[in-house]
């Protein structure tokens, strides 16, 4: 059970500013029904003063998502566009008397909808995802968003990032990437990597591959009910069979590729991993 403040409960049970604005001057839409929460924000702006004279919302999501959306509309009403842009996810959370850690992403969603609406008002296109910048594929979170939220909220751990942006909360494959981004932001030193062995005998190579699959690859797959079995090693060709939930998984190719990258990094650049048929 979530420990919500009375304020969250109140804004959830009696949300203010629900609905659409006809002929809205700006609309901002973030999230998706697949991800589990989505917010559509409507603004009416006075052309002369630049003030937001009305704000309404529609939200698909849990109690804290609905409460955060409603609070956002309350916070920005009467403000000019520039003033409204200063409203942060922290302001939303503080107004509500705090949110459970795992629910901070609801306040971030509010802030994002606001940015989207204001960009829409100014006729700017939202920065589209650049190729390669998408970090969390499960929840569609970009590196840019992770950086921004981390800096604004002084986040230093992967768990924090997951709480605030959901990134890393699905398959978990992007957690090392998130960690790297955090290290980069706060200029922390990466953990010492074991040096790559220089010259390997076949015997050593096989032993090393077995060890890495056992200790570094299988635990991650098993955490998702999957598994992998090493079938054979022929020179640089490593044949594996995916097991458990990995069998027939749409992400099987990605999993194999990830394994290959890991083995290339730790054993030899020439390793090729193939799925055993």
């Amino acid at each position: 059970m979530w420990e919500y403040t009375d304020k969250v409960k109140d804004f959830f049970l009696h949300p203010k500013n629900v609905g659409e604005i006809e002929n809205a001057d700006a609309v901002g839409e973030v999230g998706s029904i697949i991800c589990g929460d989505a917010l559509k924000l409507f603004l009416k702006v006075d052309k002369e003063t630049g003030k937001i004279i009305d704000a309404k919302f529609q939200t698909f999501g849990c109690a804290s998502a609905i409460a955060s959306s409603s609070v956002l509309t309350e916070l920005i009403k009467g403000k000019t566009i520039d003033e409204a842009l200063k409203v942060t996810n922290k302001d939303i959370a503080e107004f509500l008397g705090g949110l459970p850690d795992e629910k901070m992403h609801c306040s971030v969603m509010g802030r994002e909808a606001l940015e989207a609406a204001i960009a829409n008002y100014k006729g700017e296109a939202l920065p589209a995802h650049e190729e390669g910048k998408l970090v969390c594929k499960c929840f569609d979170v970009t590196e840019e968003k992770i950086r921004k939220v981390a800096i604004e909220n002084h986040l230093t751990t992967v768990d924090d990032i997951t709480n605030f942006t959901k990134a890393g909360g699905g398959c978990g494959e992007c957690k090392p990437d998130i960690e790297a981004i955090l290290r980069n932001i706060w200029s922390l030193k990466p953990p010492e990597k074991p040096p790559k062995p220089k010259k390997l005998t076949n015997l050593h190579k096989i032993a090393l591959i077995q060890e890495i699959i056992e200790n570094e690859i299988r635990p991650g797959l098993q955490a998702d009910n999957g598994d992998v079995e090493l079938i054979d090693i022929d020179g640089n060709k490593v044949m594996v069979a995916l097991r458990g939930m990995c069998t027939g998984c749409v992400m099987a190719d990605v999993t194999i590729k990830g394994m290959q990258n890991k083995l290339r990094e730790l054993v030899s650049e020439d390793i090729v991993v193939e799925a055993y048929q």
Binding site: C62, T162, G169
Partner: peptide
């Protein structure tokens, strides 16, 4: 079109107890 936790908390106001398979009630994001 509606989310399980929100339904449960509304039901809670009527003192009706049920459960949900939604991500928000699972303790994880899944």
């Amino acid at each position: 079109y509606v989310e399980g936790e929100a339904i449960l908390l509304r039901l809670n106001e009527y003192e009706i107890c049920a459960s949900s398979g939604s991500a928000c009630t699972s303790g994880s994001l899944e």
